[in-house]
Design a protein around this nucleic acid. Sequence first.
DNA 1: ACTTTATGTGTTATGTTATAACATCTGTTG
DNA 2: CAACAGATGTTATAACATAACACATAAAGT
Lengths: 159, 159
Amino acid sequence: MTEHTHHDVCTNCTHEHSLGIAQDIARKSGHRWSETRTQVYHTLLMADKPVTAYELMDMVAKKYARDVKPASVYRSLEALMEIGIVARIESANAFVACQNPECNHQHIFLICNYCGHVDEISDHGINRQLLKQAAEKGFIARKQILELHGQCKDCHVEG
Amino acid sequence: MTEHTHHDVCTNCTHEHSLGIAQDIARKSGHRWSETRTQVYHTLLMADKPVTAYELMDMVAKKYARDVKPASVYRSLEALMEIGIVARIESANAFVACQNPECNHQHIFLICNYCGHVDEISDHGINRQLLKQAAEKGFIARKQILELHGQCKDCHVEG
DNA sequence: ACTTTATGTGTTATGTTATAACATCTGTTG
DNA sequence: CAACAGATGTTATAACATAACACATAAAGT
């Protein structure tokens, strides 16, 4: 398998590979790993679109034939978000596996209202401008939640 | 009272005035008005920070000595949002009265993690750039959710 | 190796946010 | 004033999220 930086541009990438990366990042940032986290993360990767905690719970329960409870799922999600490989879509009360776990942690989400798919883009210029605009009001921005709702490429024709 | 365009820069503004504006906007856009909407909107104006639907329900119940139910509050909020005078803060599951009901409907919210206050800024340049970035991915953005969390001016000293 | 400590999990219960469904009422229009 | 669209009241329930406590396990120090 070739070396690469961006997960989303690598057609060779398997979920196992993502999992490996995830564990690396976790260890480097002083987080532990666990079976539940593996299952939750893997399930999110497979989903390839935002999934609510309860949906995720059912998916994990079915896939691994075990009884998972809400608290467990939320705890795993919290850890995965701290590690930086999962993000919460605020406007959907749902979660997605990040497309670029290795690079920036400032996402702009493109959420299709038709098919539900989520794309992730990145523009540090915009992030900087937002910081600046906020600063002019005396506001120090620590986190930016940027979510665009609309119509994705694949939904143009029918839409 | 002097004429003005921006509600937030007018020190003369009363909530009654905001209410008048609200009703005008409602009628112009083909919405009806009602006592419940008046109460919900007025309570939100007084709050001057994001309030959850259930908090709002309790506030209205207490203030107007009546028994309001969740469904009623949510219905009023939905209408007020359609009219464009109330906005939802997605990352807080809460609602605020817009500072500039008359002008643009594209807000950037600055949410203080310490005092909970929300400020509303506006930058069409950023909105345009986001549209453009999205368009490059073949995505037509209809709505932008822009919420910055951090530390406001008043919370710098202690923070 | 063995204790200590911090971290993660299982479980139960409950809190919080949001909507569905259906009957009733009210303002607007013709 | 009839007919209709739009609001409301009410009940019930769905969907999302966390608190609290007991127990288990991995990492770090001795």
